[in-house]
Structure formats: structure tokens, C-alpha cells
Amino acid sequence: MAKRILIVDDEFEILFLLQRIFEDFAGWQTVTARSSAEGLVKTKIESLDAIVLDVSMPEMDGFQFVEQLQSEPATANIPVVLLTAKVTPSDRQRFAQMNIAGVIAKPFDPITVWQQVAEILQWSS
């Protein structure tokens, strides 16, 4: 059965690009959200194998999203891969403390991003 992945990003172009790549190259089913709030709602109503999440979003950033996700027993164990343009050493420490599955730097390579996600999540292709 195909993996089901939620993509959360406020930039439509990135959301659409990731959706196409994950579906066309990896064969995954995708669910999309344009905000953290919408993404959290979808975690409650969708059956998900993982989440790819932009860190820098208005209203609720990726860190706040992960904190809320992990505070709910039903969603606490969904692995999260973060997309971020800037990663500082203190961010990396915070990611480790929050049990983030992995981080992919923006800009990412559209040809290999699905393979990076699969490797982080240890999904064989």
C-alpha cells in the first residue's frame, strides 16, 4: 500500500511541486495544507505515515506545529521532516529535542527531494 504523506507549506508553488514529485516519482499519496492550523486539522482526519513541514510560516511556525502534534496521543508518533531555509546550531539542537525525523534545507533539489525524505524515514523505494 502506498505511503500517505501530509505536506504543509504556505507557499503554493512549493506545495504543488512537492505534491507532484511525491506522487509521480515516489508513488506516495499526498494530502496538502497551506497553513499549520489546516495541517493540524488534517492530522486528525487523515491516516498519515509522515509529514513534510515548512518551518517558517505565518501565525504558527513549524516548531509550534510539532509541539501541538506531539501533545496529542493520536498524532504524537507521526514522523516529521522539516523544510527550512536557515538552520542554526541551536535549531539543530531543538530539532533533536523535539524528536524531528530529519531536516531538508531549502532550496532543495526537486529531482532528489523524494529520495531524501524516503531515506530520512527509512522507507525503501
Rank of each mutant, 00 (worst) to 15 (best):
V52S: 04
I100G: 05
P79I: 08
V81E: 10
F65Q: 12
F65I: 08
F25M: 06
I104P: 09
Q29I: 13
F25Y: 08
L18W: 07
P79K: 09
I7K: 01
L69C: 02
V103N: 13
I14D: 06
L18K: 06
A96M: 11
P89Y: 03
A76L: 08
E11D: 15
S71Q: 11
L15M: 13
E72I: 05
I7S: 02
S47M: 13
P110M: 11
I21F: 03
S90Q: 11
A74Q: 10
S36M: 03
L48A: 02
D91E: 09
S35W: 13
D109F: 00
R34Y: 12
S47L: 12
L53N: 14
R94F: 00
M57P: 00
L6K: 08
V31A: 06
A33F: 12
G62V: 12
T43I: 01
V80A: 08
V87N: 06
L15T: 14
V117Y: 00
D61P: 00
S124K: 07
A96P: 03
R94H: 03
D61F: 13
R92L: 10
V113N: 02
N99W: 04
I51W: 11
S71C: 06
V41H: 09
A96S: 09
W123D: 03
L53W: 11
V52E: 06
M1V: 01
M60E: 15
M98E: 08
N99E: 12
D9H: 12
A50G: 10
A76H: 05
Q29M: 06
F22Y: 04
A76P: 04
Q115V: 13
Q97D: 12
V81A: 03
A105K: 10
R92C: 07
R34N: 15
D49K: 03
Q97I: 07
G62R: 04
M57L: 10
D10Y: 12
F12M: 12
Q122M: 04
E13V: 05
V87K: 05
T32M: 10
A85N: 15
T75P: 01
R20L: 11
M98P: 02
F65C: 03
V81H: 02
S124R: 06
F16L: 08
E23V: 14
F25N: 07
E23Q: 08
F22V: 05
S124D: 11
A50F: 00
E59R: 15
W28Q: 03
P73D: 04
A74E: 14
A101S: 15
I120L: 07
D91M: 12
P73G: 05
V113D: 04
T88W: 00
L69W: 08
T43W: 12
T88S: 11
I104M: 05
S124N: 09
K86Q: 13
T30M: 02
T88N: 01
P73M: 07
T88A: 11
M60D: 14
D91S: 08
K44D: 02
S36P: 00
K3Y: 00
W114D: 13
S124H: 07
E59Y: 10
A2P: 07
A96Q: 15
